[in-house]
Design a protein around this nucleic acid. Structure first.
Length: 545
RNA sequence: GGCCCGUUAGUCAAGUGGCCAAGACGUCGCCCUCUCACGGCGAAGGCAGGGGUUCGACUCCCCUACGGGUCACCA
């Protein structure tokens, strides 16, 4: 077979040679040890929690080594392309603090190693493909979908491995006359890689995360160029990562199964292999079984979910970091205020096994993150969230920023800040009783207390409340009211002899709390009253009476 | 079914031949306390099973079981 003739027959318009292309992609001039990574999504506009897991790894690895992190769009499948898909991806990641140094931008490219959209690289792929044909490493296949399906059926019936290989690779050694005949008849073809692999040959391969793994040679003649001349992922991966100088390929471990084929491709093309980091998957518990988190079934798979639920971006980042590097949590405990960038990220601390996504843990991380913010910051984040998701609450907040900030300041700052907000969406409920238009009486005073006693206590409070008293004076007054009405003013004394009193100062405080906030629980009552102001406090107490 | 990866408490995990097997979340209890939250103290709970190798295995090897992934002109 004259492979040069075949190459020209198949791709007559490709005049470039691999050397021409190589000249356009000089080696990157980077310091020793710098890592070049890429995030390479399909432009579906949808980002999965798993995508973020990988993107963080890419970003950290590049930026902690003085390297480059770039965005490449894998739009080789038109069916997966969505209008604005690229823009949505870029914007969603930016919101999560992931920024690219190079690569595709919304309306073009930024960088010298483009084009960064695979759909614009057809000539490049075909140049390498043509070379492969010349070298006898690739050949056209004219099988129809039906023929392929028939082959698969036969293989299933005979319990053979499915795929285009051995005797099933019917076009592998077809004479050039038959090829020319099909070509002349205008029959579309795909280009297949001629695999010399043997299932009996096993090799060791080193993955940066998994360590030493076994690979069995691939014996299937996979498609490298589809009938439209666009490459499959595998071929594009080899060509692009070679030309763009990727040093570390970070991808989901489900790619492990195609690694043998990729090794073959790099070798056949004469490319140096990048290092591979196959990451564990994010799983979810479903009916007692773990499974890969799914974008169809699981709302929490979508990154937009966290945004709309009101999780702070920083919390999602922190949580993912705890999953990504096992020593991150310990580091954070020791450095509560350090920027995340100062953490030493490493593949050594990445887990080899998949982890369940733990909402409890995320919530805890989120509470910690929010507890470290100032009241003003909490206000701004909450307001931004509310504007999008709860306009009514947003207008309440906007109406009096200073008042809202005072409320959010309760128990904030200091060594032991309150940690009762995990989500921006919880803030409304947290502060609603401070606003008349949001206030509702959620609880009544338990009926185990006599109405007369309650009334007497509330009445005494009304006549004695001094809004200029400090906290100690204020509480002394509550104790006095308690004592006057037969409630024990001292908790220790009360616990020693609960039968001797109608109740304790805790109960008296509860009456007031329910009267003023409509709830059994609230932040410090003194501060609550200070913020509400005397008029409002008395109105609430009278309201209950 | 073939191939590949994985398996330390409910969850995330440290651990690299000798430890009473860290820590965090969650759960429960106690303390602090006007309630809640915070904080402090404490408890329950684990090396999937079986063989080796070794003076000694969570750590190394083999087998089994279980879980996951993958077998497209999708990525």
């Amino acid at each position: 077979m004259d492979t040069n003739l075949l190459a020209d027959l198949l791709y007559p318009n490709i005049k470039t040679l691999p050397a021409d292309i190589e000249a356009r992609y000089p080696a990157r001039n980077l310091p020793e040890g710098a890592k070049v990574t890429r995030f390479a999504p399909s432009p579906t506009g949808f980002l999965h929690i798993g995508n973020l897991y990988g993107a963080f790894t890419d970003e950290r690895l590049a930026h902690t080594s003085g390297g480059v992190f770039y965005l490449r769009i894998e739009d080789t499948d038109a069916k997966r392309t969505v209008p604005n898909g690229i823009q949505i991806i870029i914007e969603t990641l930016a919101k999560l603090g992931v920024e690219f140094d190079e690569g595709a931008v919304i309306d073009g490219d930024n960088g010298a190693y483009g084009p960064y959209r695979q759909s614009e690289r057809a000539e490049i792929y075909q140049t390498y493909a043509k070379q492969l044909i010349r070298e006898g490493k690739a050949y056209p296949c004219f099988c129809t979908e039906e023929e392929l399906a028939a082959i698969r059926e036969r293989q299933e019936a005979e319990k053979l491995n499915p795929g285009y290989y051995g005797e099933f690779a019917i076009w592998r050694d077809a004479p050039i006359e038959s090829i020319r005949e099909k070509l002349d008849a205008g029959v579309p073809f795909v280009l297949r890689f001629r695999s010399e692999g043997d299932l009996n040959n096993k090799h060791k391969f080193r993955d940066e995360i998994k360590g030493e793994i076994d690979v069995t040679e691939n014996d299937i003649d996979h498609v490298i160029l589809k009938s439209d001349g666009i490459p499959t992922y595998h071929f594009a991966h080899a060509v692009d990562d070679h030309l763009m100088g990727t040093t570390h390929v970070i991808r989901d471990e489900s790619w492990l199964s195609t690694l043998p084929f990729h090794i073959q491709l790099f070798k056949a093309l004469g490319f140096k292999m990048p290092k591979y980091c196959h990451t564990a998957q994010v799983l979810k518990l479903d009916n007692g079984n773990k499974r890969k988190i799914s974008k169809r079934k699981d709302p929490e798979a979508a990154l937009t979910y966290y945004h709309s639920q009101g999780y702070p971006v920083a919390a999602v980042r922190e949580y993912l970091m705890t999953l990504l590097n096992s020593n991150f949590e310990e580091w954070r405990l020791a450095n509560p205020d350090a920027p995340i960038e100062s953490f030493k990220f490493t593949t050594k601390k990445m887990s080899v096994s998949g982890s369940l996504f733990d909402l409890d843990k995320l919530n805890d991380v989120s509470k910690n993150v929010i507890s470290r913010l100032t009241a003003d910051e909490v206000y701004d984040f909450t307001f931004a969230w509310a504007e999008e998701n709860d306009p009514q609450f947003a207008s309440v907040l906007e109406n009096d920023r200073e008042y809202a900030v005072r409320i959010l300041s309760i128990g904030r700052g200091g060594k032991k800040p309150r940690k009762d907000i995990a989500l921006w969406s919880e803030v409304k409920d947290y502060m609603s009783f401070f606003y008349d238009m949001l206030f509702t009486r959620e609880t009544a005073i338990p009926e185990s207390f006599s109405a007369e006693d309650v009334k007497a206590v509330l009445a005494d409070f009304i006549t004695s409340y001094d809004e200029n008293a400090d906290q100690n004076e204020w509480f002394a007054n509550i104790k006095a009211i308690a004592e006057k009405n037969g409630f024990c003013p001292d908790m220790k004394q009360y616990k020693a002899n609960p039968e001797g009193f109608k109740g304790s100062v805790a109960d008296v405080s509860m009456f007031l709390r329910v009267a003023v906030t409509g709830r059994m629980n609230s932040p410090d009552l003194y501060e609550v009253m200070q913020i509400l102001g005397k008029g409002q406090v008395l109105q609430r107490v009278n309201g209950l009476l």
